[in-house]
Design a binder for these strands. Structure first.
Lengths: 226, 226
DNA sequence: GAGGCTAGGCGTACGGTGTACACCTGTCAA
DNA sequence: TTGACAGGTGTACACCGTACGCCTAGCCTC
């Protein structure tokens, strides 16, 4: 009564575990992802996961790896255009998986897909004729942006709007104690349609700014020894 | 027998708690900092901390705030020079407190010192004659670099060196599967004195690159609507 | 002085976490 | 037939953040 009784669950493997973890994190965030909850979701006891994953760190590393491995393979045209394409692909991944930023930030091991993405971006610069020296510096300058990051520290979660009176008071003290950022915020509020920051616009702006700067250095025959 | 017997510990206050937490994190890292360990260090029961701190998140937020509040007050000369000075001060803080990067990345509330630092950097741009529009974009482009960050995801911890044979094998497979980053690594190894990346050099390079780019936009009368 | 308020510290307890370790069971190769 | 072994189980441990109630010393007011 083994093969026919209750339909026997196909045995787990690493890929299934990682896929389930990604799905769970997509639904409820990385904090809510525990070995126990993941195991429950897979209809398995927590310790069973450890047959497929060394520990939780390995699990998260694997999740990051699988997502990154799914990035679009861009045409190897070389130069800024290819870099842009690859980075935009990374950014799409980041937007699709809100937990990915935190997960990447905590990574310390370079898994194959991570190395592959870095290699692809570096390759784009090199194929575009950039020197190894300049490419190296460009990669550092792009920094986390090669993973599609935009800076999100100190982003306040959406709060329920305060009463008009409170809002007025807060605005006044802000203007008094932090006049410059208040001025900037007022400026954007007045000038842009949405009235707030537009992350995608800012991301593209910065990416273009950097790629332009690289192009200029490349054209000038820049070397780091200068 | 109250005032004279055993020397009565001065009552805790928020500042003392935060200072002790910063010291503990400096010594043993943020992961090792638990309410229990911190309480023990202060000679107090864990729950006593909650009279001075709302919860652990508030504790970490307070730690970040106190460190940032200690940044050098730069001369308000305005322009890129002041921006550079303020960012270098932030970077010094980051180098002095290894846990600070992680702590900042996880913050979601803008405490006063955080707002003050952001305001100071924005003020430097504005005093330098930059428009609110450009300043806003520049702040976004600097991103986490205004906190002195350099990108550190996927930085491998120092491992004990592998045997020459292993090293040889690893290097070959790296060169085969990830030729571009391998080429870059070899190039740096050959060209630089240390043979590895120099974080401070890279940080300064990028900062200068960005500040230069901003100056160019400023000189050209850039606006975001263009 | 007497009474009460309150800030600060204590003790206990709960539900959660990651994971070490020993065990069982089905499958397949020798 | 027998053994190894991959995969799943169950129990247990140490640790975490923190809710809740209590106790005590100092101070303010009457």
């Amino acid at each position: 009564m083994s093969a026919q009784g209750e339909t026997r669950r196909a045995p787990l493997d690493r890929a299934r575990v990682l896929a389930a973890a990604v799905a769970a994190a997509d639904r409820s965030g990385l904090d809510a992802l525990s070995m126990r909850s993941l195991a429950a979701e897979l209809g398995v006891v927590p310790m069973a996961l450890y047959k497929h994953v060394a520990d939780k760190d390995d699990l998260v590393g694997g999740m990051v790896d699988t997502v990154i491995a799914g990035y679009d393979p861009a045409d190897a045209v070389g130069g800024p255009a290819e870099v842009r394409a690859r980075i935009r692909s990374a950014r799409a991944g980041l937007l699709a998986h809100p937990w990915l930023r935190t997960a990447i930030e905590s990574r310390t091991r370079r898994t194959p897909a991570v190395l592959a993405h870095m290699d692809a971006v570096a390759g784009a610069f090199l194929r575009g004729g950039y020197s190894a020296d300049l490419t190296h510096h460009a990669m550092h300058a792009l920094g986390h942006r090669i993973w599609g990051f935009s800076p999100e520290a100190f982003e306040e979660p959406p709060a329920e709007p305060p009463s008009p009176a409170e809002r007025e008071a807060m605005l006044r003290t802000m203007a008094e104690r932090f006049p410059h950022i208040t001025a900037i915020a007022m400026d954007t509020a007045a000038r842009t349609p949405s009235g707030t920051c537009e992350p995608e616009g800012e991301f593209d702006f910065t990416l273009d700014l950097l790629l332009d700067a690289f192009e200029r250095l490349h054209a000038a025959g820049w070397t780091s020894s200068a």
